[in-house]
């Protein structure tokens, strides 16, 4: 169950209850009440008797936080791993060379500079460099992470990427009804798309980029307009 109210930084929050976890946009100093530090919608999620509260707001700058799925570009290779850039002109994150499926001392991943990777943030402390991994460290399986080959990347706002990732959108299924395609959504606002041919990729990219400012049925209309005549099945 979710509910939402508009909130501004410094607003007083009505009692959240003790068992509430604080999410992004809220800050609590020791021995004081939590205060909002961002403007946006106050979102409350209740799961059984514990709940979580966070502020949903849109931005373009991505700050890594643990467990986020992200897409980045390899910008450097070092002895013990890679440097991955999640956003233009932002500090890069570390990607260990063993943080891949089946990677060991003899079998190291060989990614060129400029390669695109899909992974998950494992460490995101304020004062230390963030780290990411390209496999599920609990199971040792790739779990869909790894190098992304081919395709194209579009940059969208963070809230839109989150919406597509968590809530889904009729847009993606509408595209899927017409053409087969692959997609990976990063919380850093990067969306990777692959389809059988360039024109289709290009059109899907346009659909996704333009739908950010469209309502759901408008975006579905856009899909049928752009991709019509593309029906392969």
């Amino acid at each position: 169950m979710t509910e939402s109210t508009v909130i501004l930084p410094g607003d007083t929050l009505i009692d959240l209850g003790d068992a509430t976890t604080l999410g992004p946009g809220l800050f609590q100093a020791p021995l004081s009440k939590p205060v909002p530090v961002k403007a946006g919608y106050l979102m409350r999620k209740e799961k059984g008797h514990t709940g979580s509260v966070y502020i949903e707001s849109n931005s373009r700058r991505y700050v890594p936080s643990v467990k986020d799925h992200v897409i980045g570009v390899v910008v450097g290779r070092q002895t013990e791993g890679f440097r991955v850039l999640l956003q233009d002109a932002s500090p890069s994150v570390r990607l260990g060379q063993f943080a891949f499926e089946n990677a060991n001392k003899k079998n190291r991943p060989n990614l060129p500079v400029g390669a695109l990777v899909y992974g998950r943030i494992t460490m995101a402390d304020k004062d230390i460099e963030a780290e990411m991994e390209c496999y599920d460290s609990n199971t040792g399986k790739a779990a869909g992470f790894g190098e992304l080959k081919g395709g194209y990347v579009v940059q969208v706002s963070l809230a839109y990427a989150r919406k597509l990732l968590f809530e889904g959108s009729p847009l993606l299924s509408a595209i899927g009804d017409i053409v087969p395609f692959e997609i990976a959504i990063g919380m850093n606002g990067k969306i990777w798309i692959d389809a059988p041919d360039n024109t289709t990729i290009f059109k899907i990219a346009q659909c996704i980029e333009k739908s950010e400012t469209l309502s759901e049925h408008e975006s579905v209309d856009l899909v049928s307009k752009l991709l019509s005549g593309k029906k392969t099945k």
Binding site: V73, V74, V75, L85, D88, A89, P112, G114, A115, L116, L148, K149, G150, G151, Y152, V153, W192, N198, T199, I201, F202, A205, Q206
Partner: peptide
């Protein structure tokens, strides 16, 4: 000062579109 970091995938894609005289913004 800082070059825009463009992944190989994007580079490949944009160049192959250009080869077909197409551009990302539809021009």
């Amino acid at each position: 000062p800082k070059r825009k970091d463009i992944s190989l995938n994007e580079r490949q894609f944009i160049l192959s579109l250009l080869k077909d005289s197409q551009r990302l913004d539809g021009r």
